[in-house]
């Protein structure tokens, strides 16, 4: 029942071990150089932007400020990391990636803003995207907040419904008999296919979106919850019964906690589905949100805005994922070491 987070941790551990092996043999000079190079690569990108003449009409200030900020961050990281050997090792380990990132950004800028080689409007330069983010900051922020509101409301209701339904199906024979086939059958249909129906059922596009996300989240969570409850060892129920437990105790203190790992794997599956449902439903029906923003920008052929909103989406959804993993690790702390 190991979720992606667990796997992630595992691979992190192995790369860390490999990295520490690799760093052990390096001289101090070599180590210092390795951690300094990201500063130079982002500095180079900044210098390029500042010195070379451009061939595209672009607001350059936001991009330059961003590069300056990154350069400063990498520069400050060196003395900060020096205080702990773990951080120092991490700084060295991450270094090649950031060096490459800096060089790539410089190259990208060169090919777009400076030399105008890549076709516009489909491949805007980094400067243009950064410029658009600042220029359109207010709309982007509102769109993000709108999407988050839709996601959080839909997700919470959907998870709750899914857990309740899953517990009923997992615990009561009759609920299982009548509802499980339905869940199994309808569970394979992507919620986005229900957009036309949702729009008829619910007049407001916001609540239609909520309904779709609720459906998208509810099915996998209900499915995994009921499976999880069925999978709880019978001996735990027997132990609880000999301790004087009533049915309420058996459900809430044995069945549900025992099913928690499965519930979280359902929630994890549901997260990905809910992102897709959110974006598609916003693209089709809504008048706000990041999905709507992408579609709107596309309508104006403003691909810089499309990329800007995709980047913001990536950041936002990553944060949502991280929050869910944090909650899972807290709830399942009893499981640590047991799984993996």
């Amino acid at each position: 029942m190991s979720l992606a987070g667990g796997k992630l941790n595992g691979s992190k551990l192995t790369t860390q071990a490999a990295a520490s092996k690799a760093t052990r043999g390096r001289s101090v000079l070599h180590q210092g150089l390795l951690t300094t190079l990201p500063v130079l690569s982002f500095g180079l990108a900044l210098a390029l932007s500042l010195t070379l003449p451009g061939q595209q009409e672009v607001v350059l200030l936001p991009y330059r400020l961003l590069l300056l900020a990154l350069t400063i961050v990498f520069a400050l990281r060196i003395p900060a990391a020096r205080f702990s050997s773990a951080r120092w090792r991490k700084a060295q380990q991450d270094s090649p990636f950031y060096i490459a990132a800096g060089l790539l950004v410089a190259l990208w800028d060169l090919l777009t803003t400076k030399l105008n080689v890549l076709p516009l409007p489909f491949v805007p330069g980094p400067a243009q995207i950064a410029g658009v983010m600042v220029e359109d900051a207010e709309t982007l922020l509102l769109s993000t907040l709108y999407s988050l509101r839709l996601l959080v409301i839909g997700f919470l209701i959907g998870s709750f419904c899914g857990i309740v339904l899953g517990v009923l199906i997992g615990w009561y024979r009759k609920w299982r008999y009548w509802l499980f086939p339905f869940i199994k059958f309808m569970g394979v249909v992507p919620a986005t296919a229900l957009i036309p129906i949702a729009m008829i059922l619910v007049p407001s596009s916001f609540y239609a979106g909520v309904l779709l996300i609720v459906i998208a989240v509810c099915f996998p969570v209900a499915f995994m919850t009921s499976n999880g409850i069925e999978g709880v060892q019978n001996t735990y129920f027997e132990a609880a019964r000999t301790l004087g437990a009533d049915e309420r105790y058996l459900i809430f203190k044995v069945a549900i906690p025992g099913a928690m790992p499965a519930i979280f794997s359902g929630i994890y599956t549901a997260t990905g589905i809910s992102f897709a449902t959110l974006v598609v439903s916003e693209m089709i029906g809504a008048r706000a949100g990041l999905g709507w923003y992408i579609n709107w920008a596309k309508g104006w052929s403003n691909y810089a805005k499309v990329y800007a909103s995709i980047i913001i989406m990536a950041i936002t959804f990553s944060i949502v994922m991280a929050v869910i993993f944090r909650i899972r690790d807290r709830v399942l702390k009893w499981q640590k070491g047991l799984v993996k």
Binding site: A239, T242, L243, P257, Q335
Partner: peptide, 20 residues
């Protein structure tokens, strides 16, 4: 049926793993 007057200790300790 079961009753707390009749306690039971199982072969494997059978503690609830989600409880301390």
């Amino acid at each position: 049926g079961t009753h707390y007057e009749r306690g039971y200790v199982f072969q494997q300790a059978n503690l609830f793993p989600w409880m301390s």
